[in-house]
């Protein structure tokens, strides 16, 4: 039975406190009214630059952060309200892989303990069977078994990330959410991790949500891509179509910038997400901006399976 996450109008705001009395000085609009449908049978990429809210969204998706409004629901129930057995089941089905493996592993836990932890928490194995499961997981992520007793600081970046992936796979999840898994790794190591994730998707039918700022990496792995800007999803389409014929001006900018085309006219700076522009958030940098853009464009399905939030496109 597949898992499906329904993201409905999810908004996450953070309060900025400043001054001696820690008064409310502003609100960070990290994620604003995001709608997504995540099917655990496919691979979805979420792309955006810093400040677009993708990491925040990742944490909201697995229930580690409570949305300010809207909800992420799985099987009809809001994820952040799950308790007890339902919550444990959800933890088993949906797992998160973090960006910086140096930080996402307990510095005092050896590899075998870290990988065994989810099995212990959910009482899925013990004793000899536990050892065997751990070994099998390490093999799955191509980690030599002799690294079993190592501590994180004795491992390379790539090895640490593999441990993180092994740990996430322990409960045989149906959906893996990867938050910038290769951003802090060397290019060659990163490409191996991408290959591993692809294999896992193909052979074990694990759904993937791949969150990254690296459009090329996302495009190589995912069938669909959602582009985020300043907390909003501005375009969502099958990868081939998005890359060949982008609709949203920001997607276009991102595509051309990703090839480091130095002839690109990339004007202006990203506005802060404490004071986002009214209406369409991209209008301060958009080459085709028009008066109508003072109004917020909704994300509409203008062709089957292609959505865009723009008044003037397609």
């Amino acid at each position: 039975m597949s898992v499906r996450l329904d993201v409905q109008r999810v908004t996450k705001h953070f309060l900025v406190r400043a001054g001696f009395f820690q008064r409310r000085a502003g609100v960070v609009h990290a994620v604003d009214e995001v709608n997504l449908r995540i099917d655990a049978t496919g691979t979805l990429g979420i792309v955006g630059e810093s400040g677009c809210g993708k990491s925040t969204l990742a944490r909201v998706l697995v229930g580690l952060l409570e949305p300010t409004s809207g909800q992420v629901s799985a099987g009809g129930q809001a994820v952040h309200t799950l308790r007890g057995a339902a919550r444990r089941q959800f933890c088993r089905d949906v797992q998160l892989i973090f960006q910086d493996p140096a930080n996402s592993l307990n510095p005092r836990m050896r590899v075998e303990t870290a990988v065994a932890e989810p099995l212990i928490i959910h009482r899925l194995a013990s004793g000899q069977a536990l050892q065997r499961r751990v070994d099998a997981l390490l093999e799955q992520v191509r980690l030599p078994l002799m690294l079993r007793r190592r501590l994180p600081r004795e491992l390379s970046g790539g090895e640490r990330q593999r441990v993180g992936i092994a740990r996430a796979l322990a409960t045989e999840p149906k959906l893996l959410i990867c938050d910038e898994p290769i951003a802090s790794l060397d290019v060659s190591v990163g490409s191996q991790i991408l290959k591993l994730l692809n294999e896992l998707h193909q052979s074990r039918h694990v759904g993937l949500v791949f969150i990254s700022h690296d459009l090329a990496a996302v495009a190589s792995l995912c069938q669909r891509i959602a582009v985020m800007y300043l907390g909003r999803v501005v375009e969502e389409a099958p990868t081939a179509q998005l890359v060949a014929h982008p609709w949203h001006p920001y997607t276009e900018l991102l595509l051309r910038a990703s090839t480091l085309d130095l002839n690109l006219r990339a004007s202006g700076e990203r506005p802060s997400n404490i004071h986002p522009p009214s209406g369409c958030r991209f209008r301060t940098r958009c080459p085709i901006v028009a008066p109508v853009c003072q109004e917020d464009p909704p994300l509409l399905e203008k062709q089957p399976a292609r959505l865009v939030a723009c008044h003037k496109r397609p």
Partner: peptide, 17 residues
Amino acid sequence: EREFVLAARGLGASRWR
């Protein structure tokens, strides 16, 4: 606030653990 604690919460660890 460290990520490994977040990761453990995501795994379903109890507060005691």
